[in-house]
C-alpha cells in the first residue's frame, strides 16, 4: 500500500482493518463500534467487512466490556475494546486495575493478556461533562499496564498495530481533538518501537515534552519561540508506561531545561514523575527546575471555559520564559 495522507481517525481505522486481516484472533468490541462505526467513526466499515462475530456492538456496560475482554484473551483471542469517552472508563477501572493488569504476574507468566483498551481522551472539542478528561496518569500508575498515546496519523497507525500485537495489556489513549488532523501514513515504512520517545523538532535552548494532543501545541510554541530567537527542542513522549527517559535525558543534557505539557491536572500528573526522574538523572545538567504546564486541580470545566483550563500557546510560552529566566 503506498503512502497516503489521511486523518488520525482514518489511520486508526486502517490499522484496525490491517490487524483484523492479519490475525483471525483479533476482535473489536465496544459501544456503537459496529453498525455505526463508533461515535468518532474510528471503526467505520469494519463490521460490514469482518462480520458481527469479530466486530461486536457491546451492551452498554464498560466493566463488562473489559471483563469479557479478559475472558476472550484467556480463550486465545486478542480483543481491541473501545471505551466511548475518557470519563466513562471508570466503571471498567476495577477490571483494568485488579484483573487485566495483574493476571500475567499472578499466573507466573502462564496467562497472557493481549488486550488493547482504546480511549478517546482530552478536551478542546466543546463537549459536555465527562467527555474531555485526561485520566492517563491513573493508568500509568498501575503496574502491569502499558500506556501509550499517539500524536500523529502515522503514529496512530503504527502504534495501534504494535499495541494489538503486544502480549501485554495496552491502554491506548487517542487524542480526540486530533482525530481530524491529517498527515502522511506509509504502511511500507519501518516504525520506531512502541515505547520510544521521539525528537520532533531539534533545538538547543530548552526541551518541551508533550504527548498526544499537546505535541502539536509544543511544536507551535517552538515555532513562536523561534521568532524570538529561542531554539526549542520538542519531544513527543508517545509512551507513558514506560516513559523513554533515555531520550528525555539525552535532550535535557543538550538543552539544560525541560517543560512538560499535558492536559491532565498538573498535581500528581505525568509531568510530576518526569520532573522527579529527570531531576535525578540530570541534576548537574539542569539550569532550571523542570516546569509543568497542564490542567488545574479542578473538575474539567464547562466547555465555554475550557480555553482557560487547557494549556495553550501563551501558557506554554510563559513557562518557556520562566524556565529561561532562571
Amino acid at each position: 500500500m503506498p503512502a497516503q495522507t489521511m486523518t488520525l481517525a482514518k489511520a486508526l481505522n486502517l490499522s484496525l482493518r490491517t490487524a483484523l486481516e492479519d490475525d483471525p484472533d483479533v476482535l473489536v468490541m465496544g459501544e456503537d463500534v459496529g453498525r455505526l462505526g463508533g461515535v468518532f467513526r474510528v471503526t467505520d466499515g469494519l463490521q460490514k467487512d469482518f462480520g458481527e462475530d469479530r466486530v461486536m456492538d457491546s451492551p452498554l456496560a464498560e466493566s463488562g466490556i473489559v471483563g469479557t475482554a479478559v475472558g476472550l484473551a484467556l480463550g486465545g483471542h486478542r480483543p481491541v475494546v473501545e471505551i466511548q469517552f475518557d470519563g466513562f472508563v471508570f466503571p471498567a477501572y476495577d477490571q483494568i486495575v485488579t484483573q487485566l493488569a495483574k493476571l500475567h504476574a499472578r499466573s507466573g507468566g502462564a496467562l497472557r493478556m493481549p488486550v488493547v483498551v482504546r480511549i478517546p481522551y482530552g478536551g478542546g472539542i466543546g463537549a459536555v461533562e465527562h467527555h474531555s478528561e485526561s485520566p492517563e496518569a491513573l493508568f500509568a500508575h498501575v503496574p502491569g499496564l502499558k500506556v501509550v498515546s499517539p500524536a500523529t496519523p502515522s503514529d496512530a497507525y503504527w502504534m495501534l498495530g504494535q499495541a494489538v500485537r503486544s502480549d501485554d495489556p495496552v491502554i491506548f489513549f487517542e487524542p480526540k481533538r486530533r482525530y481530524w488532523d491529517t498527515g502522511e501514513v506509509d504502511p511500507g515504512a519501518t516504525p520506531p518501537p512502541l515505547h520510544r520517545a521521539r525528537v520532533v523538532r531539534a533545538g538547543t535552548d530548552l526541551t518541551l515534552a508533550g504527548y498526544g494532543p499537546t505535541v502539536k501545541l509544543c511544536r507551535e510554541a517552538a515555532e513562536a519561540a523561534a521568532e524570538d530567537g529561542r531554539s526549542v527542542e520538542v519531544l513527543d513522549l508517545r509512551s507513558l508506561s514506560p516513559v523513554d527517559f533515555d531520550t528525555v535525558q539525552a535532550s535535557v543534557e543538550r538543552t539544560h531545561r525541560l517543560v512538560v505539557v499535558h492536559e491532565a491536572p498538573v498535581f500528581f500528573g505525568a509531568g510530576a514523575e518526569i520532573a522527579a526522574r529527570i531531576t535525578t538523572r540530570c541534576f548537574y545538567a539542569l539550569e532550571a527546575p523542570v516546569l509543568r504546564v497542564g490542567g488545574h486541580h479542578t473538575p474539567y470545566p464547562p466547555a465555554r471555559l475550557e480555553g482557560h483550563y487547557l494549556p495553550d500557546l501563551d501558557r506554554v510560552l510563559a513557562a518557556v520564559d520562566d524556565s529561561l529566566a532562571y
Binding site: L27, D53, S63, G64, G67, T68, A69, V70, G71, L72, A73, L74, G75, G76, H77, P79, D94, Q95, T98, Q99, L103, R106, S107, G108, A110, L111
Partner: peptide, 30 residues
C-alpha cells in the same frame, strides 16, 4: 497453571471473574 486443569486462578475481587467466564465462553463459541 489454569491451562492444565481447566481451573482458573482464584479471584478475590468478588464477582470480577464472572465476566471472565462469560468472555471465555464467548471465545469458546467463536
Amino acid at each position: 497453571d489454569p491451562r492444565g486443569s481447566g481451573f482458573h486462578l482464584y479471584t478475590l475481587v468478588v464477582g470480577a471473574h464472572v465476566l471472565h467466564a462469560t468472555g471465555y465462553a464467548m471465545s469458546l463459541a467463536k
